[in-house]
Write a protein that binds this DNA or RNA. Sequence first.
DNA 1: TTCCATGCAAATCGTTTGCATAAAC
DNA 2: GTTTATGCAAACGATTTGCATGGAA
Lengths: 148, 148
Amino acid sequence: MLYDITKLGIIPNLGRGFMSNYSKQRECIINIIRDLRTHPTAEEIYMKVKQVDEKISRSTVYRNINILVENGDVNKISMPVGPDRYDYNHEMHNHIICEKCGKVYDFYYDIPKSLRKEIENQLLGKISLGESIEIKGICYECKSKKEK
Amino acid sequence: MLYDITKLGIIPNLGRGFMSNYSKQRECIINIIRDLRTHPTAEEIYMKVKQVDEKISRSTVYRNINILVENGDVNKISMPVGPDRYDYNHEMHNHIICEKCGKVYDFYYDIPKSLRKEIENQLLGKISLGESIEIKGICYECKSKKEK
DNA sequence: TTCCATGCAAATCGTTTGCATAAAC
DNA sequence: GTTTATGCAAACGATTTGCATGGAA
C-alpha cells in the first residue's frame, strides 16, 4: 500500500465490500473530486483524472463516483438540464440551481426551525428533510435571454 | 376547431410558434397532465394518453410535455434516480424529494423573507429564487432499509 | 398552399453492465 | 489463492431528432 487512503478522510467500509481495495486510480479520482469546487459532471471529472492517468476508463470513474455518493462523501446534484453534477462534502452548504441552464451556485443558510417543523407536520412519518437543501431558481443570464 | 384549447387555461403563444395549431392529441395530453396529481413520468403520461388515443406516439407526448414546460404550465422535477417527473402548475406548492428512491411529496410553505433576502445578498446579480422550492430528503421507507 | 404537428425509426446522450484481465490483500 | 477493481465494448433507459406524411389555418 503506497498511501493510506484513510488519510483523505475516506473511511473504508471494509465490512460492506466498498472501498476495501486500494488502487492508484481510486486514489486519484478521490483526490480530484475533493479538490474540485466547480460542481463537475462525471465527464469533467473523467477528463481531469485523465490528465494524471492517461489510460483510465470512464467506467472506473463512474463506478468510483457512485461509491463515494453511496458512502455520503460526495453529493450528487440532479440537473434540470444536462448530466448530473457532483460535489465533495466539505463544510455545510446549500445549492441553488438555474432551472434553464443548470448552473449551480452555493449559498449558506441554516434551515429555519419553522420550516423543519412545518415539513415534519405536513409529512408526518413519510419523509425527513436532509441536511442541505437544493432550491431552483433562474439565473440572470437566462432571465435576460428569456425577456428578449 | 372542435374545442377551444384556451378554455383549459392554456394561452396559445401564437407569436412564438408554440401551441399555435390545434390537434386532438395535444388537447388530450394537456387534459391528462392537468388532471393527474401523481407527479407522473413521461412514460406514465404516455400510457395514460394511450388509453384514450390508442395510436399516439411517444414523441408527440414528449414534444408536448416540453412545450408545456417551456410555457411554464407544467413543472419539470429532476429526479435523483429514474426519469424526470412532471407536475401541472395548479396552486402554489413545494416538493420534497427522496434522494434514494425519488418519491415526491408536496408540502405548503411560504418561503420566509429572511431566506429570500439571504440568497439575494449572497448571490447578488447572479440568480433569483423561483416561486416554488424543491428540497431533498430521505423517506422513512428508504431510511429503514438503510439501517438494516 | 403554407405552416405546423404527427408517427415512426434511428440517433443521441448519459450511464451501467458483463466479462476477461490485472492488481490488491 | 481468493477477492475486488479495472478496461473495454456492448447494453441500457430516457429523450431527442430527421424525415415523410397528414391535418390545421
